[in-house]
Amino acid sequence: MDRIPILRMGDFLLVTIQIDLYDKLATNLESDLVQMVNKTGARGVLIDISGLSIVDSFMGRILGNIGSMSKIMDAETVVVGIQPAVAITLIELGLELKGVHTALNVEKGMELLKEKIGSPSDESPQDEDSSE
């Protein structure tokens, strides 16, 4: 059974989902991620779902679960790259992805994560205009 690769970047874990997931793959990702958070002591998890054209309540629950589980282990979760159509559908469905933060793209997601965990930034202080 193939798995979704989890990349480690400093204090963060980075997951990019490029294809529509089989349920099994999604549940595997959930457990793998939690394991990885434990093993690496990561402070933040960033999940890029720009490749997902469909997020149903199952997938939404997985994302929520990852958020809550990481939270207990003291890591913040940011989901980035939600497609407009997916966002609207989720709202209609009644899913608001509580427990996870969202950002437009990976870059903004990283900024958000750094802000959230107030990490001893490895970068020079941010420009005033953080939207750039």
């Binding site: 980035v80 939600i82 407009p84 609207i88 709202i91 992805l97 969202t102 437009l104």
Partner: peptide, 12 residues
Amino acid sequence: IKTVSATRLMGA
């Protein structure tokens, strides 16, 4: 409210 929630979901 829906529009606002959807915007937030996008991270804005």
